[in-house]
Amino acid sequence: MSVQQPRAGLAVSSAALGAVAVVMAVSAWVTWAFVRPRAGDALPSPVAVVLTLVLGALWVLILVMAVLAVLFGVLGRHAAVGPARAGATFGAVAALLALAGAVAFVVTATDWLVVVPGQR
């Protein structure tokens, strides 16, 4: 039985996945700046709600990509140190951006909650 060492492909895929995750996270934040509903206003338009929900789902996807980039970087660090370190760094930055985006989404979505007193 032979034990295989991590290949350089893991390091390269970590760098690529991390870079794509960072670009997607920054793009999502730029889109969020244009779409986000203002706090305290009336309920936002249906288009703004749909776009906000799509951005919330996108941040979850970016978070998964960032975790995979860090994981691949850690696993591929023995084969190719440079790309593995870059991928893990990109993944960590993307994870921070995605977590901040997810928190912003949750705060915005809870602002949409309208409590109407029951009528008898």
Rank of each mutant, 00 (worst) to 15 (best):
L55M: 08
D111L: 05
D111G: 12
V22T: 01
A11L: 07
L99H: 00
V47H: 07
L10H: 13
P83T: 09
V50W: 12
V22H: 01
L53F: 13
W29C: 02
A69G: 03
T89P: 02
V103T: 09
V67C: 09
V20N: 09
G18S: 04
V114L: 12
V3E: 11
V20I: 11
A28N: 15
L99C: 12
M1W: 08
A86R: 14
V47I: 14
A33K: 03
F105I: 00
W112N: 07
M65P: 00
A69Y: 04
P46L: 06
A33T: 06
A28I: 04
T52C: 02
R36T: 11
A100T: 12
A16W: 06
V107N: 09
G76W: 01
G76N: 02
A84S: 13
L53M: 15
T110E: 13
R7N: 13
A42V: 06
V60L: 12
V106Y: 09
A79K: 05
D111M: 00
L63Y: 11
L61I: 04
A94G: 10
Q4L: 15
L58G: 13
S45N: 06
R77T: 08
A109M: 10
G40N: 03
L99D: 02
V107I: 13
L17Q: 11
V12C: 00
A84P: 04
G18Y: 03
V47L: 14
A48Y: 02
D41C: 08
R36M: 07
G91I: 07
P46E: 09
R85Y: 03
A21W: 04
A11W: 01
R36Y: 07
D111F: 00
R85E: 10
M24E: 13
R77A: 11
A11K: 05
P117N: 01
Q119R: 12
D41I: 00
T108N: 02
L43Y: 07
G76Q: 03
A16Y: 10
M24F: 08
A28G: 13
A86N: 10
L17T: 15
V60I: 12
A92L: 14
T89F: 11
P83E: 07
R85F: 08
A48F: 01
L43E: 08
D41L: 02
